[in-house]
Nucleic acid binder design. Sequence first.
DNA 1: CAGGATGGTTGACAACCTCAAGTATTAGGC
DNA 2: GCCTAATACTTGAGGTTGTCAACCATCCTG
Lengths: 139, 139
Amino acid sequence: MKPATPPPSGAWPLLVRLFFAQRANLPPLAAELRLSPAQCHVLHLIEPERPIPMGQLAETLACDASNVTGLVDRLESRGLVRRRPSAGDRRVKVLVLTPTGSRLRALLLDRMTAPPAALERLSLREERALVRILRRLLE
Amino acid sequence: MKPATPPPSGAWPLLVRLFFAQRANLPPLAAELRLSPAQCHVLHLIEPERPIPMGQLAETLACDASNVTGLVDRLESRGLVRRRPSAGDRRVKVLVLTPTGSRLRALLLDRMTAPPAALERLSLREERALVRILRRLLE
DNA sequence: CAGGATGGTTGACAACCTCAAGTATTAGGC
DNA sequence: GCCTAATACTTGAGGTTGTCAACCATCCTG
């Protein structure tokens, strides 16, 4: 039997592993809030007081526009989001969080942002360094 | 109009943002290899020469066992994976990559591991620090 | 050996996702 | 001003992903 996969050496492979590990962890959290992972992603992207056009959402999600239609249909039917006509262009519909949606979004971010136990293992120095580095990665 | 969301300050919120950004980036990559995101995840988890029981896969994916059945059905029908009876326990079936599956997996990891442009912005020092920190996060 | 736990499959059903086609609106060329 | 092309979203069909409940085969324990 071969040994377990040796830890990859570069930074990006490690991030990929962290990414997949984290991916597995979203469904239970979503279920807790009666949401699907995809709905969490959408809710995460609509900031309160910052309406976003549906097309832009599709682009950010890297998915087909018709998919966004369905996702928003379900979120809207639950009263979390509202479609509003755009002032400038009557073709586009912008999405706004309802108060309920806004509260649920805050709860979601709160849950997701609760640091996992693994983070406790970092020293204060390390955590600061990580923050600085991630900031640069995200622009 | 409010300003864009201020950058979160803790390490974990930043990781969450990186996670969501990365999530949007998987579907196009998967499509390029004629795979779905979920199939990528499975392929990522089956290491060559390291057969894994289906149940363990379900646990790692944090999904129902019946879901794994379907995923493996499709991967197997494409000749990427094979079910094999386990020596010790005749209830369990372990998954092995076929040579084709192994090649596709290598290609997948290669594509995913190609560092995005953002990583180039890090200095050598920062990258080393990031690697060290991520290693600790992943155990 | 009986009864219960465990690993995997099946079937029903909902959500997710893409593609192709359709509608409404906008923008550009004449 | 019009006619055409492009854009924003919706609809419908069809496959994938995911859950749950029920099921069979195998293991394990008393």
